[in-house]
Design a protein around this nucleic acid. Structure first.
Lengths: 219, 219
DNA sequence: CCGGGGGTCGGCCGATCGGTTGATGCGGGG
DNA sequence: CCCCGCATCAACCGATCGGCCGACCCCCGG
């Protein structure tokens, strides 16, 4: 893990961290730039307003850490950007508003090094950036709690097909309509629905839609 | 409209604006402070992380403009804070992420002077703050569009009772259960449901829940 | 080679839903 | 004073849903 043998007792040779800021909200991004500019050991080397920009800039600038919002308007979303950027070896520190189970799980699976909420204190953000630069992970307390809870009782994992049915269901379609929309028989729709109810812990279509919207299981 | 007759050709006597920043996300708030601090004609006289704080500080500091996020964790929400602050004569400029019809309508009804999205460019924010200080309203383009659209085709206005039924429906309850929960007969539930379907333009429970969640018609 | 998970079907049946029509009471605005 | 919107309830009926049984196929991994 230590490619170059460090001389004795030099805890952090380069306390200087180069970061890339990605947030689709211009005001927020400008705010972050102004805020991070006040930290002498942090240098913002680039900023992106979309996932595509972030991926391109991360590859070009190879920052120590990419600060990534999960919510990124149109184009590829924060999760996908996180996946691609972290695949290149650049650490990704997620900084977002959402503490939903689904978002957290997907971000972690995508390779995020840390997951911070925007409600966090700025000092925590600074600390997390340095931590991420060294590969250490930082989680906001609420996020940590949810991660723990999730380990204990894993989230309902819907299959692709089940998500298809759920998507149609959320449009208020009946079984026959769903069947026609997906080119399958009505019986198959009912079979899938039954399993969806099981996994979501409900027993009605309306309940399934409510849970799906609640846990952001649909696009 | 011009209480004191201004001497000829002095467009804006005090270009200095005192503002109060309210946002529950500490990082964002710190970012805004850093950003606004870079504008010489804007002075941040206070910051709040909750609606209660914002209301209290607005009364105490009487800023020219209160910059208000709609999403404010626990306690009173941004809409209610907007209502109370603007009732005291302080201009409220909403600065938020959401451009949902429901949010926009409620904020405007609560007395917001302007409605800006966080995706806006910082210069627009500065301009909007000065505009708000003079009582002029600024709307982000997407917001303006939605407002116009809303004027043309008014949103489905559900009665209180219909919202009650819809709330139960979103929990996946059946008609009988809804009836018992609200102490009415099953026939009444069906009557209300029929009207809800009409207003939301759907014809199934699942569809109603989807639309309700989509347009944030429920808490 | 056999097991199992995912996807696809069919049939059955009771319970529920959605639509309709009609009726009552109550409150506010013209 | 009368009308209208809102909430309440009733009875009816066809369509749909939800749960249950069993069945077949394909693919992957042990």
């Amino acid at each position: 893990m230590t490619p170059a043998p460090a001389p004795a007792y030099v805890p952090a040779p380069p306390p200087h961290v180069r970061i890339l800021v990605c947030d689709d909200h211009t005001v927020v991004r400008a705010g972050l730039l102004a805020l991070l500019g006040s930290a002498p050991d942090i240098e913002v080397v680039g900023e992106a307003g979309t996932g595509e920009e972030a991926v391109a800039l991360a590859a070009k600038l190879t920052p120590d850490v990419a600060l990534m919002d999960l919510q990124l308007g149109p184009g590829i979303d924060g999760v996908e950007a996180t996946r691609r950027i972290s695949a290149t070896g650049v650490r990704v520190l997620v900084l977002t508003t959402y503490d939903t189970d689904a978002d957290i799980t997907r971000a972690i699976e995508a390779g995020a090094t840390g997951y911070l909420l925007k409600a966090e204190r700025p000092e925590e953000l600074f600390a997390a950036i340095h931590a991420a630069a060294q590969g250490r992970t930082t989680l906001s307390p609420p996020v940590a709690s949810r991660v723990m809870a999730q380990m204990r009782s894993p989230r309902p994992t819907l299959t692709d097909r089940e998500r298809d049915i759920l998507g149609q269901l959320a449009h208020g379609l009946g079984n026959r309509e769903i069947a026609r929309a997906l080119f399958i028989s009505e019986a198959t729709v009912k079979t899938h629905l039954g399993r969806i109810y099981d996994k979501l812990g409900v027993d009605t279509r309306a309940g399934a839609v409510a849970v799906a919207k609640e846990q952001r299981l649909l696009p």
